[in-house]
Amino acid sequence: MTGTEDILLCAAAWRKAGKGVALATVVSTWGSSPRPVGSQLAVDDRGDFVGSVSGGCIEGAVIKEALDAIETGRPRLLDFGVTNEQAWEVGLACGGKVQVFVERIE
């Protein structure tokens, strides 16, 4: 679980600076997935982020949901996998599946 510390510190620093912040965490994986359970990504209200929850395949979609979570305060559990023709856009090219929990830092 490397690098998590910096992500939490960064999230706390952003929050202290008055920014809206959300935290995304990989909570389960199936098959080959690039980042292990516990990997985290912090996002601020401008879409700047630190950390990762995949090899870059799903970050865009996660950030979009994170921005919505910052606005509404509603936590959410996101499922990603290769499920349809759109796989290359919002799925994992490696064929794995991941579940990502997104929450606002209050």
Partner: peptide, 13 residues
Amino acid sequence: MIRAVLDDLISAR
């Protein structure tokens, strides 16, 4: 995540 939880996590670490 409430701030107290984040702060407790960071100080435990």
